[in-house]
Design a protein around this nucleic acid. Structure first.
Ligand SMILES: [Mn+2]
Ligand SMILES: [Mn+2]
Ligand SMILES: [Zn+2]
Ligand SMILES: [Zn+2]
Lengths: 158, 158
DNA sequence: ACCCGACTTTGTAGTCATTACAAAAATGAG
DNA sequence: CTCATTTTTGTAATGACTACAAAGTCGGGT
């Protein structure tokens, strides 16, 4: 992707192979990955990759404003493009993190009780629509055949 | 405090000295402390206190519903009473965490885009009213005399 | 008062994410 | 090609937290 090299250059980051691959991964996988997920995903392509490089690169990207780090839950750091403000929902069953465009009263750059607000995070947690099933049993790890047997879904307030 | 012993008994927790002191600390210091802050604060009173006991106790309190753990920012776990829902503001200068009663559209126990929401956290960050000063220089560690010299405050949108 | 078993606390060791640091490798201008 | 600068890598260190087992505490039954 020439695109990615351009992004790096625009942010004054030399487009080394590792940096390009990491940013490319972030671009193609909008899953708010942890450093380790990125590392695991790139190990095949870059067998010599070091976890230190992943951390160095992510921190450099944050420094230059390409990425932001999120502390949602469970004290884990996750990374995503620095995009328009939006809110997050994490499924406690499958672990997926969803972006919600839900328009929200954002107090960013405003004042509340005299406090100047510069960051505003809304983090929701629950059971995502793919994991909401008639029974509360987790269906995440059921084999495909077992999954198919479940035909009745609760629409639960359409 | 007989009160604290009562709270423990009501939650089926034997009121040992350590547990009473830890809960008493939480009750008297509504600062959303970390485990280490609690440990440091109680070391004088309980010289034999172990950090493991602090963690064990906090986790037991959470298990029994007395406390909740917060993952606000910087990947640190903080503890507070399990109270009515409210939102948090952390000052990036002095580090204090404020409770804001700001009424908020809470999606708890509601559905968004088909996802069932069970937890709802709003975390704000910025500069608290005590740290907002005419200059952006941090005044947190200035001696009292220097502080007093600063007379002009920005009301900044009353 | 003594014994015993259950619960609680403690210290140490282990895990996991992240950072610090220095050596090795790659890059690139002259 | 050469050498200085940048980048990557591996290893060690840090810090929060957990696992685990030994030691301490306590209360009931004798
Ligand atoms: Mn997002
Ligand atoms: Mn609070
Ligand atoms: Zn899910
Ligand atoms: Zn402050």
């Amino acid at each position: 992707m020439q695109d990615i090299i351009e992004i790096l250059k625009e942010h004054n980051i030399a487009p080394s192979m590792q940096r390009v691959k990491i940013l490319e991964y972030l671009q193609n996988n909008r899953i708010h990955p942890t450093a380790d997920i990125i590392y695991q995903a790139l190990m095949d392509e870059i067998p010599t990759l070091s976890k230190t490089t992943v951390y160095n690169t992510l921190n450099a990207f944050i420094e230059k404003g390409i990425l932001v780090a999120l502390s949602l839950f469970e004290n884990e750091v996750r990374y995503e493009y620095n995009t328009d403000p939006h809110i997050h929902f994490k499924c406690s069953i499958c672990g997926k993190i969803y972006d919600l465009d839900k328009s929200y009263d954002l107090y960013k750059d405003d004042f509340i009780d005299g406090h100047k607000v510069t960051e505003h995070h809304v983090n929701l947690k629950g059971i995502c629509k793919n994991c909401v099933k008639p029974t509360t049993r987790s269906t995440q790890r059921l084999p495909e055949i077992a999954k198919r047997k479940i035909t009745k879904f609760h629409t639960l307030r359409s």
